[in-house]
């Protein structure tokens, strides 16, 4: 249920603006990879390129190649919806569908994939909500609006919604930046649990979080505003935070810049 991702020389553009330049990295299955770096350095753009959400924005395009278990996800013959089903995404701000109940939110992805049978949906709802450590908190009010939950619960609901379709990879774009420390901890615990089943890539501004949860860390940076972001260093998290190879990485993690 988890796959290896290989990016080679990925450059992403917004119109004529180059947001990231030639990023190459390999992400092993069933690991957590953290992407860190200052604002505007292209971490999120790179993340969105992995499940082809980048191209949703007008005039956005990428160059280079991205493969998942040796399948090129940017192959013109590939169905983009299949890519996104395989590579789920959790966003920065919790975004449950406001018109749907907790239950409907949890199974929204399955319904999109044509699953209609009530018993399957019920089972999937419970399983995904349990996986997201949310079941005990919401099992008595599944028909209440999903947007009525607290921020942390909403984010876990979004994670449940994402993993309900059984993706191979889960991308998380600063999933805790809108949450309080206790909710953040709950999400981090959840990530450890999900690691057994999914490959996880997380963008975070919180270096302690990257150090706590990830196996590998990639450090992105830009020279100055307007320049494309680059992957400066990509290595084991332990190494990045104790003995980085690059001076820039060291400056960033010790708080001397960014």
């Amino acid at each position: 249920m988890a796959k290896r991702i290989e990016a080679s020389n990925v450059s992403s553009y917004y119109g004529s603006f180059k947001a990231i330049d030639s990023v190459s990295m390999t992400v092993e299955p069933k690991t957590i990879t953290a992407l860190i770096g200052p604002s505007g350095c292209g971490k999120s753009t790179f993340l969105r390129s992995i499940n082809r959400m980048h191209e949703v924005l007008p005039n956005a395009r990428i160059e280079g190649s991205l493969t998942i278990d040796d399948q090129n996800i940017y192959d013109p013959d590939v169905d983009v919806t299949a890519v996104r089903r395989m590579i789920g995404m959790v966003f920065q701000r919790p975004n449950p569908f406001p018109t749907m109940s907790i239950y409907e939110n949890a199974v929204a992805g399955l319904k999109l994939n044509g699953v209609k049978k009530k018993s399957i949906l019920d089972e999937a709802a419970e399983k995904s909500l349990r996986s997201a450590n949310l079941w005990d908190e919401v099992k008595d009010r599944l028909d209440r609006p999903g947007a009525g939950l607290s921020g942390g619960q909403q984010q876990r609901l979004c994670i449940a919604r994402t993993i309900a379709v059984e993706p191979q990879v889960v991308l998380m774009d600063e999933p805790c930046s809108a949450l309080d420390p206790i909710s953040t901890l709950a999400i981090e615990d959840l990530m450890f649990k999900l690691k057994d089943r999914f490959t996880i890539i997380i963008v975070t501004h919180n270096m302690q979080q990257a150090a706590r949860v990830s196996d590998k860390t990639g450090f992105f940076s830009i020279d100055k505003t307007g320049d494309p972001g680059r992957l400066i260093e990509y290595d084991d998290t332990q190494k990045i935070f104790s003995n980085p190879a690059q001076k820039k990485t060291e400056d960033y993690i010790t708080g001397r810049f960014g």
Binding site: N51, V56, G88, A108, C158, R161, T162
Partner: peptide, 9 residues
């Protein structure tokens, strides 16, 4: 919300 739906495939 539109992005959430698209990201679900």
């Amino acid at each position: 919300n539109e992005e959430a739906a698209l990201a679900l495939g």
